[in-house]
Design a protein around this nucleic acid. Structure first.
Length: 276
DNA sequence: AGGACACCCTGTTGGC
DNA sequence: TGCCAACAGGGTGTCC
């Protein structure tokens, strides 16, 4: 589930359940994945925010140390919050107003409690590019960086030129911009198209509540048979062999940078000759 | 600097 | 039907 639109949807859904509440206990059995969660005990949640695919629970200062903290949550591939305990519950978050369960079948999700804004040891968060839906995401800068970049899809996935783009939305954005996933050194025209494609795709997906959402908490529900609002609008992702919505040619699937990659061989040709 | 790769985990799917 | 390999929405560390 967790690319920017799904994380943002999660944030919106659980904020009413957590904001203003005091965390009584965070229990789990994997301290290397969920670090320093004991620091959250007794602190009030002052608000929730999101940076790329990271969810931040802002914690008020405790009487003992007078220092604000963040409970950073990364959903990994399959993480999500639910109201009920299940076979894949990894973390139980108890507040003075109820309990929230973090489910994560694949255990790629992570949590850590840190002093506010201290992200040492989290290189992706430290090097995170601008939010695609904010004014900090500027076309001129994006075009400048893209001119010297390597293969465009891995570049997008690095979170450096822009934050929150994952495998699904990278493929969808590249299709809209009519760019081959392995294209490098984008021309200003190409990079401009991609800039707007990323913004549009992310905006539409957030409005739709992301892909594959289910029970009202923004959960990963792919095998629960409840398709998300944006999933039905995918042009290429998960559509190998089916016709391109633009030209009708079958969508191809390859592997690029260890990730499944979907594209239209006609609409998204690889430009081999150097632009003049 | 940046690319390629292994690794962290478990569940589902598709081919034989 | 049953088994097993391949694959899955992400990030990190290491090696070159």
């Amino acid at each position: 589930m967790p690319e920017l639109p799904e994380v943002e949807t999660t944030r919106r859904k659980i904020e009413p359940l957590l904001a203003g509440r005091t965390i009584l206990q965070v229990t789990h059995d994997a301290p290397h994945r969920y670090r320093d969660t004991g620091l959250a005990h007794g602190r009030q949640v002052s608000g929730l925010s999101r940076r790329g695919k990271y969810l931040m629970l802002h914690l008020a200062a405790a009487e003992a140390d007078g220092e604000e903290h963040d409970l950073i949550v990364h959903l990994g591939m399959t993480g999500g919050f639910r109201l009920e305990e299940g076979p894949h519950t990894r973390v139980t978050l108890t507040t003075d107003a109820g309990t929230l369960y973090f489910h994560d079948p694949r255990r790629f999700g992570k949590m850590a409690v840190v002093p506010r804004g201290v992200y040492t040891g989290m290189p992706t968060l430290l090097g995170m590019g601008p939010e695609p839906l904010s004014e900090d995401f500027r076309e001129e800068e994006f075009v400048r960086l893209a001119a010297n970049a390597g293969a465009v899809k891995p570049w997008l996935l690095s979170q450096k030129p822009v934050s929150g783009v994952g495998n699904i939305y990278a493929d969808e954005s590249l299709w809209r911009a009519r760019l081959h996933p392995a294209q490098s050194r984008l021309t200003p025209g190409e990079a401009g198209r991609l800039y707007h494609a990323v913004r549009d795709v992310m905006h539409e997906a957030v409005e739709a509540g992301g892909s594959s959402l289910g029970d009202g908490l923004g959960n990963y529900r792919q095998h629960d048979g409840e398709p998300g609002a944006f999933q039905g609008r995918h042009a290429v992702y998960g559509r190998a062999g089916q016709p391109c919505p633009r030209c009708g040619v079958p969508i191809e699937k390859t592997v690029l940078a260890q990730r499944g990659t979907h594209f239209c061989p006609v609409c998204q040709p690889l430009r081999t000759e150097d632009p003049a």
